[in-house]
């Protein structure tokens, strides 16, 4: 071509359609010179990015991922969102609502049982943890187990509660270490022996405390009133003897024990000859039965004292 010739690409725009230009820009090698095709294809191959550009610290303020190439955080956030969406979709269904309602109901029942508002048979009794404040040194908080065991042993629910209360009461009695029987009056209507045996077998107490507890419980029986009276009389005699010892000399024969009374019957006769008339009946009793003497002498001792005073 000469310098006056015009190439097709220098001709009027009407000779070069948009389609040809678009074809060249798209990389179509059938249109335009080969050098132009090489340029277009070369630019695409050299400068086309294959991986995402890492996010810098400043840009990370807008985007929650530091490095898009790892995509772990992004995937995790998407996964969390998908999970939440899935759960919400499930709850929206009928089955999901039923499951959710059942779960809520079970949780509320459990909470109610924990605060003793509702009694659940399958769950452990939280009330067993209550109670008996055992101030003793070796308190093992065995009452819960004890109460639970006793409740399982009893058939009647009312008696269960009564037994529990009774055990609680008895242990408190142990702590107080007194012989009060007023609290045992509540067991009058029941088999006292059975109650004592159950307590003895179920109690967690050991040794002295256990025996003391059992004795205290047994001492609350009404059939033992006579024995109690005799015990009380013995106690009073002992108290009287002590009083006499304080007032009179120690060698006074009446201050001695029963055995001393028996052995010193003759002394009584020798020392108190003037009082034989008053003591004859009593001496015979002394010889025969020391206890009878001790008991019967109670009023006689008083009379003797009076006689002594009169004679003196």
């Amino acid at each position: 071509m000469s310098e006056f010739d015009v190439s097709p690409f220098e001709m009027d725009d009407n000779s070069l359609s948009e389609t040809d230009i678009e074809a060249v820009l798209a990389g179509d090698q059938t249109a335009g010179p080969d050098a132009l095709h090489d340029l277009i294809s070369g630019l695409r191959e050299r400068f086309e990015a294959s991986t995402d550009v890492p996010v810098g610290a400043a840009l990370a303020e807008f985007i929650d991922v530091v490095d898009l190439t790892t995509t772990s955080t992004h995937t995790e956030s998407r996964r969390n969102r998908k999970m939440i969406t899935g759960i919400g979709t499930f709850i929206a269904t009928t089955t999901g609502k039923i499951v959710l309602g059942t779960t809520v109901a079970a949780a509320s029942m459990g909470a109610a049982h924990a605060v003793d508002m509702v009694e659940m048979p399958g769950l452990p009794e939280s009330s067993a943890e209550v109670i008996v404040v055992d101030n003793s040194e070796d308190s093992e908080e065995t009452v819960p187990t004890q109460a639970h065991d006793e409740s399982n042993a009893m058939e009647d629910e009312d008696t269960k509660e009564d037994e529990t209360e009774e055990v609680v009461i008895k242990e408190e009695a142990i702590e107080k270490s007194d012989g009060e029987d007023s609290e045992g009056e509540g067991t009058k209507d029941r088999n006292h022996g059975q109650m004592i045996s159950e307590f003895a077998t179920s109690t967690e107490l050991e040794g002295c405390e256990k025996g003391q507890a059992i004795s205290e419980l047994a001492s609350s029986k009404h059939d033992d009133e006579d024995q109690d009276e005799s015990d009380d009389a013995e106690e009073e005699d002992e108290n009287d003897d002590e009083d006499e010892l304080d007032d009179d000399s120690k060698d006074h024969p009446c201050k001695d024990d029963d055995l001393d009374h028996e052995s010193e019957d003759s002394d009584h006769e020798d020392e108190d000859e003037d009082e034989d008339e008053d003591h004859e009946d009593h001496d015979e009793e002394h010889r025969g039965n020391g206890k009878a003497k001790g008991k019967s002498n109670k009023p006689d001792h008083d009379d003797d004292d009076d006689d002594d005073v009169d004679e003196s």
């Binding site: 190439s7 690409f9 070069l16 335009g32």
Partner: peptide
């Protein structure tokens, strides 16, 4: 495009 082609056309 024409300019690029002209550059290549010179060759």
């Amino acid at each position: 495009i024409r300019t690029l082609a002209r550059e290549f056309e010179e060759i």
